[in-house]
Computed example of a mutant assay.
Amino acid sequence: MTNPTPELDAEAMYSTLLQQVKAGLAQVENVALVGIHSGGAWLAERLAADLQLTERLGFVDVSFHRDDYAEKGLKADVKSTQIPFDVEGATIVLVDDVLYTGRTTRAAINELFDYGRPARVLLAALADRGGRELPIAADFLAETVSLPDQRLLVLQRAEDGRFFLTVDHA
């Protein structure tokens, strides 16, 4: 593992994201959170606890819905999708750690629609690193980060549950 990136305080970024989501959902009913494995799932778990939405928490693994599946292959650690609530008519906050090309978000939306038709899908992301290939933008965003294409911004979770970010080679 590489060292945490000191200029990117993932805990401070999480606090910013939490405040945005809390304010944005203040008057919204039938809300549920769906985290994209794995970093987005970690964020969604913590958001659900902080927003008292633990009964309305789900997770998606987009491995089989990605349009570049044939090119990238299957990850060794595929997780199962778990959506234990009715998606139909719900306002879903899709949670991801790093927004980049938009392909993961598109795949997650496709997966969601396999479970029903939400009234609305909002996107919450800890970091947006640009480089979009699809017209996707976060509704709730903690920070915009610039990185060269050959670098990856990776959310890590320590044993005590605290978040930190690392920059790895692609």
Rank of each mutant, 00 (worst) to 15 (best):
97 D>I: 01
76 A>D: 15
15 S>E: 15
11 E>R: 13
140 F>M: 08
102 G>T: 10
30 N>H: 15
170 A>D: 14
168 D>V: 05
124 A>C: 11
38 S>A: 12
154 V>D: 08
73 G>P: 04
71 E>S: 15
40 G>W: 12
119 A>N: 15
12 A>Q: 15
115 Y>E: 07
20 Q>S: 08
90 A>R: 09
19 Q>N: 13
169 H>L: 10
35 G>I: 06
150 Q>R: 14
127 A>F: 07
8 L>N: 08
50 D>H: 06
66 R>G: 01
1 M>R: 13
164 F>R: 14
87 V>R: 02
161 G>N: 07
108 A>Y: 01
40 G>C: 11
11 E>H: 07
119 A>G: 13
1 M>K: 11
66 R>K: 05
84 P>I: 01
88 E>L: 08
57 L>F: 14
134 L>T: 01
32 A>S: 08
11 E>T: 09
18 L>T: 04
13 M>N: 10
24 G>V: 08
91 T>R: 02
4 P>Q: 07
159 E>M: 04
60 V>I: 11
3 N>F: 14
31 V>D: 06
130 G>R: 05
124 A>F: 07
131 G>R: 07
89 G>N: 15
22 K>R: 15
83 I>L: 11
5 T>A: 13
115 Y>A: 10
146 S>Q: 13
5 T>V: 10
146 S>Y: 10
9 D>K: 12
43 L>D: 02
66 R>E: 02
42 W>R: 07
34 V>A: 09
111 E>W: 03
56 R>A: 04
122 L>Q: 12
88 E>C: 10
6 P>Q: 03
106 R>I: 00
58 G>C: 03
153 L>P: 11
21 V>H: 04
8 L>C: 10
11 E>F: 11
63 S>D: 09
153 L>G: 03
117 R>C: 03
155 L>E: 06
60 V>C: 06
63 S>P: 12
56 R>E: 00
109 I>L: 08
131 G>P: 02
